[in-house]
Design a protein around this nucleic acid. Structure first.
Lengths: 222, 222
DNA sequence: CGTAATGAAATTGGTTCCAAAAACACGTTG
DNA sequence: CAACGTGTTTTTGGAACCAATTTCATTACG
């Protein structure tokens, strides 16, 4: 029996708020005082407060003293900085994965996701593509080690909405040169340096594409 | 006047607990229920709780449901993983710094710290050396950008006690090949790739030295 | 003598309450 | 009409309180 999460109110509030934020239900810029949020979640202020503190530590919300909790938006600057950090961390993750031999089912899992992403892209279903691509990156993190995974997850959370929105803005039939399959091969081949370099440049390429979109649309934040 | 920190009880508790943890006043493994901590800090449980949640998010304490808050210790595994991540992030920081021209006073500040560390090492004052070395790394972070700085700071916090202890265990006259000055020159020369590579390999060398100490002393955690 | 059971104490998650400070609305005045 | 002052409302930081659950200790029993 896996650790039976004894669902406490704080956890509940945390999970619900986080998911609401990530899927855009609570859009960036949205701002509400604690009592409102507490009412929405049908609990007292205390557990909400504690959940908000956690979310603040993860860079998803900002607690402004007398103005309520505000869902953080991502500026172009933020976006670039986060991608830059991710390129390093995912590079490290890839290097770690390539170093030790992965069980076969892990490769299978990766492969399935890559295929799903490719398929979504062919069908021009950008929503699904973004979802699968995100999953791919998170899986890379989870295959490295828990600490690195958490680090990567937190950063991905901060930009996943922005990623989705940007992708949707991309009108053309997505000439994104995605190299997930390349990374997959490098991981399989067991060459840490190669895996790291591919993961890193892959991420950086993606960043550049996104940056272009940012500029084309004249956006300063999302 | 810079942002006047309106010293709230939560902030107070957070700062005091953090500093107590970092300087070893509250040693790793120490465990106490919330009421005790609240009494020690002479405030009610509420602000203490909130401070503890923040500290947990930063990986310094663990909140065990009915056993109190426990100061986390650092296992060899943790230590290596954190250093590995730091090698990437500091590499990135160095690259960023080298890319844009730094104001002269920043270089001066760096130089002063490097000299202080070297001097401490010559006098075999390992305590002071650890302190200055830590400051050097944090300064590198702070010269990159706030986001990267916070990331690096959090990780340094998790291992700074371990670093100090390990250094104290190092009996020999510290044959640590510290290359802080090399990094300084690379930053000044303005070559991002070189700066990154030096920062990274510098950190990795340090890791290896530390790891050896870990093993020689037969320690599994600190 | 070790183990199970039972009752007491302690800790936590959470609600409620309170006071202080800030924001807000409104009316007054220059 | 704008700016200011005043009184009200809102929000937050924090404390006190409570119930539920767990731990601890003591005792009884095999």
């Amino acid at each position: 029996m896996l650790s039976q999460a004894k669902t406490t109110r704080v956890d509940n509030a945390y999970e619900r708020l986080k998911s609401d934020i990530l899927n855009g239900d609570l859009p960036p810029g949205y701002q509400a005082p604690e009592p409102d949020i507490a009412a929405r979640l049908q609990m007292s202020r205390t557990p909400v407060r504690e959940a908000l503190i956690r979310l603040e530590a993860e860079g998803l919300v900002e607690l402004v003293p007398r103005r309520g909790a505000r869902i953080l938006s991502v500026t172009t600057q933020d976006f670039l900085e986060i991608h830059q950090i991710l390129s390093m961390l995912e590079g490290l993750a890839a290097s770690i994965i390539a170093q030790r031999k992965l069980p076969a089912h892990a490769f299978d899992e990766l492969s399935v996701i890559i295929d799903a992403a490719d398929e979504a892209l062919e069908k021009n279903d950008l929503e699904a593509f973004a979802e699968h691509d995100d999953q791919f990156h998170r899986l890379i993190g989870s295959l490295s080690n828990p600490r690195l995974q958490r680090e990567i997850d937190v950063l991905l959370n901060q930009i996943c909405r922005a990623n989705k929105v940007l992708l949707r803005l991309n009108k053309g039939p997505a000439a994104l040169p995605i190299g997930n399959r390349d990374l997959f091969e490098a991981l399989k081949s067991g060459s840490p340096e190669k895996a790291e370099s591919i993961a890193r440049s892959h991420r950086i390429e993606g960043t550049m594409t996104m940056k272009r979109l940012f500029e084309e649309c004249g956006l300063t934040h999302l």
